[in-house]
Nucleic acid binder design. Structure first.
Lengths: 335, 335
DNA sequence: CTGTTAGCGCATTCAC
DNA sequence: GTGAATGCGCTAACAG
């Protein structure tokens, strides 16, 4: 930058003004500087600017695992939304464990970023205190464990109720619940609640032997939970898995055992990952409005960042629930 | 840091030494400093350190799209490998387009990172010059377009030949090739070449009407290409898709049209994404050794970074081909 | 082994 | 409108 200034015969300040699109620079001056910048191939040093500005332009996105399709798609949406407002996203994987989720709040790497988009799944209500951080943070995808923290929630409970009602409407009564093990986990808890609400509203009892799951919501978990339930020897005619990959794992397991979907057992999931429309059979699921969630959350965080240079505002927290939509597909079709 | 130094009654340098685990510090001194750090809750400012050091500790990983399972799993592996050597990964999405892939090499954001792990898929040989960059870079997943650039290649050609031979061994002769459209694209070109090599070695001709595809290797592409081929009215008994998601899309399309896999048509893919073992039927594919690739590439890049503080070495480029393994599953079973 | 000094490259007070 | 100082927080010579 010094070289540019010298070569253009102006001061450092002028170059800085030009680069930062400061309005009051004479056009001829600006052109001259820009030409020199081009000649020299000058590129600004972000690190220096960051040090001076006290911020980095980076925001962290903490998700359980990128290889879980839902979070890959969420990350994609967040990156796109952040690009729009000039922010860069640094992805952190928590492994979906409580320890991993707590660590991301305090790790030194956290300090490389100006703010955090946080999607905890394993945190318990006892951990709510940990969310009382001194940097801008927006919670994603579930209702806040703690008041006073911005969050963009998805319609977990309403979505689960809707999809359960869809199963009930199809005449299914013996509906298994997969993933409902960890009743403390936010999204799981809410989705399970929606399920139970729909069941009890329909006057159908939930058989505890039809419930299985694990903390990690993976394909394997779905398959294993399905196997567990089947081996208990109970009858069932439908499965609601708390997310799509578990539903797909469960379908796989049903297939292994010679059961047909939706003939013998209807299967529904939650998330509407891309794969859900291409699986065999295609999967009925709830689309939680990922894009809207990402855009809203990034906007919220950007506002906080702009508001007080990274300082935490004490103003009231935003609580936004995204819209959802049921995607009815083959896996729950009735003959 | 100044506060810590003052409170501990030592100089800045000593605190710095302690924080950086400089070996020659008296234990009692270190303990004292550490205690004060703890008391004050001091956390280092990375930006300042980076400015001083002239590096950021960040490396970029440029992939087409995170939502493509292969790249999500690759990113996961890279992040894990980078963590091991104290590096943080910044993910860039190129969209799988030539423009996007070129931009990642020159964008200002590039300068936030010390080096680049680069996985181009749309670059053509005419773009090889663009790879002559002045920062450490390691190419991932395909043979370098340009000599003198480090790269960790997967066994594209050998893997494709192996899986094609597997189809031929199963008695299949009318084998469709999906994804082979863009013959310039590195990995696609090589995989297609392996396919053709196996075919010609077996004395089987490749029917051009059995070839379809698109630049973007998505599930939709696979389904669409499969539809195209089927609508040409040609007979076929197998499909080799150049990656798993296209294979899954193709299977979906076959199913839509009442064709059975592997009964009527055997299907094989490439990548061994997690989904391949859970699809219905499970998918025969090539495991290209993602973890090994990630670890090797990160190691290579870390070496370059350490070697000359981010300067590009003129030493001979490394060229490493990872090992591969065929995963034989239901989609290519013979009765 | 530890303290002192001088930048890293930029943004930002202020005068001009 | 533009130029000249000062500091962001840390590390890397040095000297002691």
């Amino acid at each position: 930058m010094r070289d540019v200034a010298r070569r253009a015969g102006v001061s450092l300040k002028t170059v800085s003004n030009v680069v930062n699109a400061y309005p009051h620079v004479r056009p001829e001056m600006r052109d001259r500087v820009l030409r020199v910048i081009d000649e020299l191939g000058y590129q600004m040093n972000f690190t220096a600017r960051n040090l001076s500005l006290g911020r980095t332009g980076l925001i962290a996105l903490a998700v359980p695992e990128l290889r879980l399709a839902y979070f890959a798609e969420l990350a994609d949406a967040v990156i796109a939304a952040a690009d729009q407002v000039g922010l860069t996203v640094l992805i952190e994987q928590t492994g979906g464990t409580r320890a991993g989720e707590l660590e991301v709040l305090t790790s030194p790497r956290r300090r490389m970023t100006d703010g955090l988009l946080y999607s905890p799944t394993a945190l318990r209500s006892a951990d709510a205190g940990a969310l009382d951080v001194d940097f801008p943070m927006v919670l994603l995808g579930e209702r806040a464990l703690r008041r006073g923290v911005d969050h963009v929630a998805m319609a977990n409970e309403a979505g689960a109720r809707t999809v359960t009602e869809h199963l009930l409407d199809g005449g299914r009564r013996r509906i298994a619940l997969i993933g409902g093990h960890d009743s403390e986990s936010g999204a799981g808890n809410l989705r399970a609640r929606g399920f139970r609400a729909a069941m009890s509203a329909a006057g159908v009892e939930v058989d505890p032997r039809l419930v299985a799951g694990d903390e990690r919501w993976s394909r394997q978990t779905g398959a294993r939970a399905m196997a567990e339930i089947l081996e208990r020897g109970v009858t069932l005619d439908a499965v609601f898995a708390l997310n799509d990959v578990m539903a797909l794992g469960a379908m796989r397991e049903l297939f292994e055992r010679g059961l047909s979907v939706p003939g013998d057992v209807a299967v529904a999931g939650f998330d509407n990952i891309e794969e859900a429309s291409f699986s065999r059979p295609s999967l009925t699921t709830i689309d939680p409005g990922r894009t809207e969630i990402a855009r809203t959350a990034v906007g919220l965080l950007a506002d906080r960042l702009a508001g007080r240079g990274g300082e935490h505002e004490t103003a009231s927290a935003h609580e936004i629930v995204a819209g959802f939509r049921i995607e009815t597909r083959e896996s729950t079709a009735t003959d």
